[in-house]
Amino acid sequence: MARKTGPVVPLGRDASSRLLPWVFTLMVYLASLSLASVLMLHGAADRWDRGEINAVTVQLLPLDDGSEAERIAQTLKLLRSTPGIAAARVLEISENMALLEPWLGEGDVLGELPLPRLIDVTLTPGETLDVEALSKTLAEAVPGVTVDDPKIWLNRLATLGRSLEAVAGAIVVLIASAAVATVIFITRMGLAVHQDIIELLHLIGARDSYVAYQFQSHALSVGLRGGLLGIAMAVGTLVGIRSAAERLDAPLLPDLSIEPWAWAAFAMVPLVTALIAMVTARITALRVLSRMP
């Protein structure tokens, strides 16, 4: 005979309440994606800031005097005797071409252009290389040699990463504020729509906290449902993006992995959302009720 008791204030049947879980789903989805980019950018920007690089490129400008082979040999010798360098490999002309092809197209143009020769230098992991000093030594020893210092664009990347991170963080805060505003609005509306029920509850001796409880538990369940769906969608999207990025095989893309603690933070999103909704509904209801005669 035991049947489930419905909520005392039938908030779930209001048109606004039926919409609310979807609003939350969308907000949590967007907030999760922003948060994910904050976490990824944070990791990447940290690495960029620390200037952790594992390769530099050395360029030999074409000098047109037939000294190329000798200069390459000289450079390689110098590189290989520099501490912190694990390997140095000259890129074949064909590899050079392959790099340029997307911009210049196939054909004879390439064969006639004087191209710089590139040396791919792999650094010993864990050791630091003074790129500036290396650059100086090479330039003195071999004419027409330059070293691409990745530090310069890494610094720029780090700055860019930090500002993107700030933007994404601001978006998360904005979405959270929108969620709070929505809950305040919906709670006030619920209090107005169900005025007669609330008056009756008061007349049979309900305290404000009992009435507020009806609203806060509704907000909690809506927040939790919307939040879980939103986070599920966000995880789906991120997994999709990752596998797409892996197929792209773009070496320039930073490592966009998310660390384990960050995943945990991610899992907190629906919980935090639901808690924010609950606390907001409670405070709103209590404030409105306390103003009643």
Binding site: R3, T5, H202, G205
Partner: peptide, 29 residues
């Protein structure tokens, strides 16, 4: 205070002229 009124009301039973039953709840509830 509102709180005091609430606890006083718990000592009072009321049959309203227009009943004021909650339509979404069963008789038992």
């Amino acid at each position: 205070s509102r709180k005091t009124l609430a606890s006083l009301r718990r000592r009072i039973g009321v049959v309203f002229q227009e009943f004021r039953l909650l339509n979404h709840l069963s008789a038992l509830d």
